[in-house]
Structures are given as C-alpha cells and as structure tokens.
Design a binder for these strands. Structure first.
Lengths: 188, 188
DNA sequence: GACTTCCATTAACAAATGATAAGATGTGAT
DNA sequence: ATCACATCTTATCATTTGTTAATGGAAGTC
C-alpha cells in the first residue's frame, strides 16, 4: 500500500491518490540485486514497501560507497535527482529481499504539472531528499565518526543487524575496522 | 547579464529568456552580509553576477559550517531545496562584495509549470544542485582531506586567496590548523 | 607611529583513524 | 560433519587530524 507512504510525506486527496494508483506496478528483488545501475536506462519512481536497500557509487579504487539507506515504507530518491539523459547517475542495491512499487517517471512528471496536490507531494519528496543530504553533509563535516554512528542508529536502529557492516562504514566515511572499534566503545 | 548564466546551464529560446528577464531585480551586498538567514522569510531565486558567497549552517557548538561556495556567474541553490513553509532552512553570506540578480520564486514556479523550456532549465538546476551534493558526499566519505583540498582547488582555483580559510576548512570537514598543514604539504 | 584586531602559520602533544595481518564466528554446500 | 567462504573482531603500528598555545604578519583605528 503506497497510500500510507504518500500521506506520511504530504497528505493528498483520494482522487489524486487514485491517479497515482492507476499506474503503479510492483517489483520484487532478492537480496543483493542492483536494480538500478549506473549509466543504464531507468525511468521510474520507486516506493519501498518491504526490506532495506542502499544507493551507492563506485569510487576510483573500485569500492562501493554508500550514499543513503532506505527502510521499508519510504520513497527512493526521486528520478530527476538521480538521472541525466534517462541514464542513472547512481546505483541502488537491495540489502535484504525487497518489495517495490514503481511508477513511470514521465507520467508522474505530467501528473505533477497538472495536479497541484501531486506537485506539492513531489516537491516535498525533493526537499526531503535535499534535507537528508544537507544533514549528512553537516554530519560528515562537523561530527566525529562515533557521533555519526549514534545518529545513524537513531534513524535506523536495526541496521547493524540487517546489512553488512562494510556498507555502514562507507556511509559513515570510515573503514569497517574503525566501525568495529566504535561499536565496541559504545557497548557499555 | 543572466542570459549567459541560464544558457550555460540549459539553452532556452529568447522568448523564454524574455519571460524571465521581465521579472528580474538586482541586489548588491557588501562583504560579510548574511542576505539569506535561517528561519526567516525568503521567496526568491538568485543569480550571482559578481563576487563569491557561501551557504552555511550553525552547528551545535555555534560554528558556521560551510555547505557550498558560489562563484560569479552561477545560480544559487534553488528555492525549493532550501526553503520550507517560506522559511529558509540555511543561511547565505557574501564573502566578497557581491552583485545578485533575483526573481520571485513563486512567479518562477508558475513559469516552470507553463513553459517547457523554463521547466527543463529549472530541473537541470535542481539536478546540478543534487549532483554537487552527491559529489561532495563521496569526497567526504572516501577521500582524504588533502585530496578534498586538491579537488576544491580545481573547482575554485582562487578561493584560498579570496575567502577566510576557516570557511574553507569547515567545507572540507577539517580545522583551519589542519588546512594550514595541508597547504604547506602541497607547496612543493 | 603605536595600537589593537584578525588571520594564518607553527609547534608539541593527544586522540582518532587507517593499513595490514591474524584470529574468530557463522553460513551454506557437499 | 566437514569444508570453503564471507564477515566481524582484535592487535599492532603508522599516519592523519584535533587541541592548545605561541608566533608572526597584515589591515585598520586612534
């Protein structure tokens, strides 16, 4: 049900909701699948119904650097912010088995132009995405790694039990060895 | 002239350009002025015509943390990405004397709805903003401070001669003492 | 000119993080 | 049950970065 996800971000009328539900499709992926790959075609907006996934990029050394985590009942980064010329700028990978709802990004863009409620919803998603990035940016620039871990735990309490610690370490901007040390230091 | 700025981002027809130019106003600020303040009303889009400015936030310790630098002939972060309920989420300060062109954000939003070219321009600005943030995010997560400084110098070669080093240090996520060390290490 | 005042640099020491390598644990396949 | 494989932890040492304090220089004020 994407209704709850949408309304938790910006409340819209059932008419507007119906317009979106008309074009929804569903996709399931096993754990460990890159369902959006860099430089490949992709023209969808996504809702994560079940499971956990991450957005990431490969750095020059060939390592995956986690950009964001996504928990169930959330919206993945909006199409316009991760796409240029229909090609994806970043990758998304399932970290558990996941269930997605997807809609065509072009049709959704039309709905945004023609429907004020949907436009407001879309813009709110956009602002949230930016706010998240600014928040992370500040954290990386002005918090210690330990403080960043504490903050991440507030956002995703179960994350360390669900996903490889390497993914968490690259998100925090440290090595997985350092993460292990921080975890130990936080036990007491 | 905002024409060159707009066309350097997304080429639009002279008709569309005229629609924007009709509503342009101009503002000048001396060095060191916070012309957008957090939690205050602001409803403008900005073009930076001359000078250098930064966006920033105050961290819990009361220090200004630089989010981005803006050089002449660039667009400042778009309204939707830095505003919620008409209140600014972040601050902007001039680091030199600056000349700005501004337009009403609500009128611009209407232009985006009604004019495909302007919509494409606006969306490109949005994508650029996100791409910048992702780029910085990756840098903070996977580069050393020295590498980040080298990258910043590629983007803004003269920055260290124009603005206080403290502003650069908080952008890089280090102290100004560390910045001084890195500068020395990069001289040879 | 003497005086602040602000900034950048440098030094010395402490703390945090990285790199490498070596165990330990758990899972799945056969 | 055993083996291989991946993952997390731990240990050791090197490097980077932070903290505090002192020094020096440039710009502005009186």
């Amino acid at each position: 049900m994407i209704k709850e996800i949408i309304n938790s971000i910006y409340r819209i009328s059932s008419n507007s909701l119906a317009e979106i539900e008309k074009i929804v499709k569903y996709e399931n992926y096993d754990k460990g699948i890159s369902f959006i790959e860099k430089n490949k075609l992709n023209n969808k907006e996504y809702f994560l119904l079940e499971g956990v996934c991450k957005s990431y990029l490969i750095n020059p050394e060939g390592n995956e650097i986690t950009l964001s985590f996504f928990d169930e009942n959330s919206v993945l980064s909006p199409y316009t912010t991760r796409t240029s010329n229909n090609r994806s700028l970043i990758c998304f990978k399932s970290l558990t088995d996941i269930k997605l709802a997807s809609i065509d990004a072009n049709i959704f863009a039309e709905l945004m132009v023609n429907n004020l409620e949907i436009r407001n919803f879309g813009n709110q998603v956009l602002r949230n995405e930016l706010a998240c990035k600014v928040d992370k940016e500040i954290g990386l620039a002005s918090l210690t790694a330990k403080e960043r871990l504490i903050k991440l735990r507030e956002q995703f309490p179960l994350l360390e039990n669900l996903v490889p610690h390497t993914d968490i370490a690259t998100y925090l901007g440290i090595t997985n060895i350092s993460l292990s040390r921080l975890r130990k230091g936080l036990i007491k």
